[in-house]
Design a protein around this nucleic acid. Sequence first.
DNA 1: TTGAAAGCGTTACCAG
DNA 2: CTGGTAACGCTTTCAA
Lengths: 367, 367
Amino acid sequence: MADPRKKTPGDARSAPVRIKDIADDLGVSVAAVSRALRNRGEISSEKRALVLKRAAELNYRPNLVARALVTGRSGLMGLVVPDLVHSFFAELAVALSRALRRSGFNLLIASSDEDAELERQEIDRLVSRGVDALLVASTQPTSDTFHSILDPNTPCVLLDRWFAGLSANFVGVDDEKVGTIATEHLLQIGCRHVAHISGTGVSTSRGRLEGYTKTLARYGIPINDDHIVSVQQLDKAAVSGGYAAARKLLLCDPRPDGIFCCNDPMAIGAMQAIFEAGLRIPSDIALIGCGNLHYDSALHVPLSSIDQRSEALGERAAELAIRLVEAREPVRPKVILLEPSLIVRKSTERPALRLMESLERAAEKVG
Amino acid sequence: MADPRKKTPGDARSAPVRIKDIADDLGVSVAAVSRALRNRGEISSEKRALVLKRAAELNYRPNLVARALVTGRSGLMGLVVPDLVHSFFAELAVALSRALRRSGFNLLIASSDEDAELERQEIDRLVSRGVDALLVASTQPTSDTFHSILDPNTPCVLLDRWFAGLSANFVGVDDEKVGTIATEHLLQIGCRHVAHISGTGVSTSRGRLEGYTKTLARYGIPINDDHIVSVQQLDKAAVSGGYAAARKLLLCDPRPDGIFCCNDPMAIGAMQAIFEAGLRIPSDIALIGCGNLHYDSALHVPLSSIDQRSEALGERAAELAIRLVEAREPVRPKVILLEPSLIVRKSTERPALRLMESLERAAEKVG
DNA sequence: TTGAAAGCGTTACCAG
DNA sequence: CTGGTAACGCTTTCAA
């Protein structure tokens, strides 16, 4: 007798086994099998054992699509980032994916290419796919456009970037502090003319710029507008953007002796420009980036950076997203601000600092 | 009048709008709305326009989960890699994701952590989720274990790594050629003692090793077993593995004057070991890796590498996977081998080579 | 404890 | 061209 569920007569592929198949096979109801399989609801332990055994034999795989349709929960989370090629977002995606897996969620990743409209489409699509929550490093220009995109039924966590005035879930670092730490570090190693290569449009750039200007002010240093250069494509063309910006800075008078870059790829571009100009790092110009990417320490000159804690960020975001999904009712938006930290490498190591370090090391040994 | 579809009485969230809502609203059948929305089947253009307009007004989003259940196609592809933190796989994931998006697919990414059992579980789960195809850089030890994992109804494309004797779809580079190009390059720049830091267990390592030994043989150079060091954790701990392996190599007599590393992270580790030993690259030891990662050119010494064409690989794999999904019947397995290419950077630039290059450049100008 | 049956939102088949 | 309606595989209520 031919199996009516075979796709095509000559096809070797057999249809996947369903709950009903197990039920028929065992002469019990589908309800019982469903309960046994998930170890839920009332069921005798003998029957459960029987079902489990048969399911294993038949290599039964639950159809998660069907389950999602009836339960209204897919076990999927959606991640939207501006550019997955930018290592910070790749690292973030990895951390998120890891953390979510532990709770049985899978991650659906979409790139917006720093295009607000494309981001809208991707979010729409993820919502259509029934993701239980959305995690997005948004590229929207304003809080309004962002809000208009969201689906009221899908909880959302903002990553890395936030919007003024928008009450939303957010996980990221304190960007003003990022700017403060970096700028202060450059000042403390003796830089007199600290420049900044900035991004545009997003909260991270604004916050870091603010940390930069406030710190200079606090140190009584006048702000030189020429020493602040903005790069348009924050992530997509960061390296070339940083390169171009640094070249502009090198023409300034006075020439900067320290540059704080909005992110590490920009710093890599800047590094290249500095070398091409025949200058040395850090002796002529000290350089610090932001993101603390995995390969920073292996760069031409190992790059000092501000750690944005991509791993912790992923964990905390996953945690928060899961809590939102679990909550039956809407929950008050939560903001998680992680502390950025300074990672000193060769690109900002000046003799003075090296001296201090060796003193500290000596002190450690003594203590 | 209370909407019976509201989740909870006090809840501001309203249930998503369905086809049925539009149908009721317009006084037409769900079938008509469904057809209009997808622009399929017979339907008058006036009615279609009407439906489309109302759908837009109501901000209708198709429920892709329901659609997947009935059509048996999810529009999802599953990617399984050993370690997403390894840049090669991150770059591959990005390329794949990009290519798939153009055809309306989303990508579900899972990491196996180089654990065969975990890989099995992840594949199971992706199949459960109804992915239309699987793309996997497998960590299984043998062709048999791999085959036993697969679902007969879900087409699969092997990425980067393949299994002897398994007739399957595969997209990757020709690994023996990788080994040949790298080894030959080191010989041609004048290395007399070329060592190899190898991986274990997977086809890529075996192929590259084979290219290495065959090339030495072809040049009439006896193989020195001490000059071949294997690293266990191919991707998870590649940097530290490369570091340890290089340290071992530095103790050899004769000491290698050129090292071909199985991948770039290993080369980064090796680079560190070489510097720590007070040696210079490339003058004391030339170094070449494999993968041509984005940041290679910004490293301490810009790293020569064999390009594995992660972008093209993603593209071709996406293409192939889509074809498999589209095909109604099983299609004969296809193997796509991409040509690896040599990327020369400072880590293998020897005076002799520079001379040759300038000669070539001069020749070009003349020609 | 058990099983029958009513959905979940969509598509696809058929009869008008 | 149109509109009922039966699936898709599963969970969950409800009555036995």
